[in-house]
Amino acid sequence: MNEEAKDKIIEYVKQQKKSKLYFNDLCKAVPEIKMMQAKKVVNELISEGKLKYWSSGSTTMYMLPSEGDVAKEEEGMN
């Protein structure tokens, strides 16, 4: 069941226009499971390298590992 949920979440993230999503955005991909369960699924996706974290310091978001990052792009410009 986790594998199915993982696929749904990754599919959902890929469909989004924005690169970074909040945890409860990810949960929208799997409305049939409880949030605590979704947390475990997301943890697995992180540890498998299929999702990565982005943090503003005060809040955290999730993104695909292929996505760039503002800071990285800025570094490239310097």
Partner: peptide, 11 residues
């Protein structure tokens, strides 16, 4: 446009 994702800035 180069350095920001507009939907995220708005949010």
């Amino acid at each position: 446009q180069n350095v920001c994702e507009i939907p995220l800035v708005i949010a």
